[in-house]
Amino acid sequence: MTANLRRRKLVSHIFEVLCGLAVVVALIPLAMILFYVIKEGAGSLNLDFFTHMPKPVGEAGGGMANAIVGTLILIGIAAAFAVPIGCLCGIHLAEYPGKFSSAVRFAADVLNGVPSIVIGIFAYGLVVLPVKRFSALAGGVALGMLMIPIVVRTTEELLLLVPGGLREGALALGATRSRSVFSVIVPAALPGILTGILVALARVAGETAPLLFTALNNAYWSTSLSQPIASLTVQVYTYANSPYDDWHRQAWAGAFLLVMMILTLSIAARLAVRRLERMNRS
């Protein structure tokens, strides 16, 4: 082996090791978060956590039933208006590309990058100020606005994964453009679009900042859309900031629940996309 070849092999090896190290460093935070959340949270999670209201300070036990229901209501409102708008917008980008498509795509990406606290302030101005009251509706609107760009982009990307042959096949049978989109292409991409929506939901379910001055929080049971409402994230934030050990344990349990929720949805999304890609190849 010449000296030159030896040197080249050494350089190659060094780069390989550096890349490997970078991967390890990148994964450390994820592993530690999972480790701590599971270690601290799993133990505190029990049936009471799902079915009971928070107990006053000093009393052990209790749960976050109101916050769990509150989070579900909030993401329900968010989905109710973000899913139709986002999906139709994504269909427009993928199936009816035009002069403005790239501008719309760029706008969606910018909106996706807007800090969630700014979205919260916007929803505060839009919904809270006119009626002078924090409400579940305002929280839902803020979360929905965070969802829209994610839904738009995933819908678009998944529609573009649908084999072009299906589009041509439907058109060749005398389908109109819209008919081919809604009867063949969207159904083919539907599993992927649905999981994309679920991922977007999981993502906004983990948001705290936009809820702080829209949905606020509520120590009591409330399902009214016009009243402040509790949510898992704000509850975790409040409990984690408190000086009480019981509340810290509850905060860990809440965090654990959130992480598990998001993890499950992300894995489901990956599987659905893989299925679509397989269909694309065959």
Binding site: P163, G165, L166, E168, G169, L171, A172, L173, G174, A188
Partner: peptide, 15 residues
């Protein structure tokens, strides 16, 4: 296109 049917190189059954 209803009057003129087409069969493609790659079979494209709908899912």
């Amino acid at each position: 296109r209803r009057r003129v049917g087409m069969v493609f190189q790659k079979s494209n059954p709908f899912p």
